[in-house]
Design a protein around this nucleic acid. Sequence first.
DNA 1: TCTGGGGTCCTAGGACCC
DNA 2: TCTGGGGTCCTAGGACCC
Length: 432
Amino acid sequence: MYALVDGNNFYVSCERVFRPSLQGRPVIVLSNNDGCAIARSNEAKALGIAMGAPWFQIRQTLPDAGVVALSANFTLYGDMSNRMMAIAAGLGPGQEIYSIDESFIDMSTMRGDLVARSHRVRERILQWTGIPTGIGIGATKTLAKLANHVAKTADRTPGSYPVDLARVCNLSALPASDLEAVFAATALGEVWGIGRRIGAQLQEAGLKSVLDVVRLDPAMVRGRWSVVLERTVRELQGQQCVGFEDEAPAKKEIASTRSFGQPVTQLADLIEAVSQFASRAAEKLRRQESRAGQVLCFIRTSPFRRDDKQYSRSVTIPLRRPTADTAALVQAAVHGAKAIFKPGFNYAKAGVMLLDLQDASVEQQELALDEGPPDRSALMETMDRLNERYGRGSIALASTGRSNGQRVWTMKQSLKTPEYTTRWADVPRVLA
DNA sequence: TCTGGGGTCCTAGGACCC
DNA sequence: TCTGGGGTCCTAGGACCC
């Protein structure tokens, strides 16, 4: 038995905690570069603003709707997430943090009224953080996800589901006939694991609701579609196929990529950006105590600028030895950027990915035929500590270009709110 | 006329998630 | 003018082995 605790319109809810005047208004949070909508309040959804809709188009089509757009403030969301997760953990003995606003709680050993307990935890999250949540309970993670969808939809849209399923919904407590009614009232695209492509294929085969999917024969699904979809069907039927992970497993690849605030044409600027991305990725790499065996660097133009000549290339650089040294990783990434750069293009995006990750505690011994690389692990640790203490970027490699004046490649964030909970200068003041 | 059987590893691409 | 970032898993096909 699992519960899924999920923040409603999470980024928007975080912003509303500190700006109550945004309650009841259509609010959206924009991706980096203020590009497209990545979170929408219920009011914004009601206006028909789609997930991923470009902000400049929303502005054109809805000039008078009073839509409030905000630049993404991930520092704030991350901090609010930590607070929410800490309280949600009180719901049961095990917690798997699945994303910034979702965690699964293992309730398999719990007795008593799970719904009443969930309502209490939900109220506590709301009171202590200001974030409204929905809680779904089911026999498998896929069913808990579905229950969560029911809980949120019933809360937001009266008449969509029975009112007593709003906010907290336990599917495994429903009589069979009620469960079938819920399945029949839910579009199959709402199921965790059924995306656009597979959803369209299922509809083409004549299926419409979750109930149609639940009734499929898993063996047939495996033959006609895939083992992945088979697992989803089995999970919907109550058979656990997706494991519960208390502890987050180490990442197998780590990326840092960005779109630029304006087109970049010069190699020198690209080198700055790639140095910055490699440095950031290296920080993440050291935090999980891994080393990278390969570095991938890519650059590309914007496919949306139809009139521009297009170019997109990546290169993977194998490293002589796996490393977590920022200088070595930046060097490899810059080497790659130089190799694939071609003049005469408007570059819109670049990125660095660290691949072939391995645990730092495991080291392949070799014959000492050369001196080996200098050990700068103490320097890296000091760098990380300084940046943690005094803020990201306090100390950095010179090739990231900070002393060089203007970075032309940095992103646009013209609508950003303060870091209310993580910067002393930004802490809100309460006037008596 | 007629060309085996069984296996591993790697990569690219597709699909999904938030 | 203006379109995000960061992941995972699975499969097919090629290269290679004996």
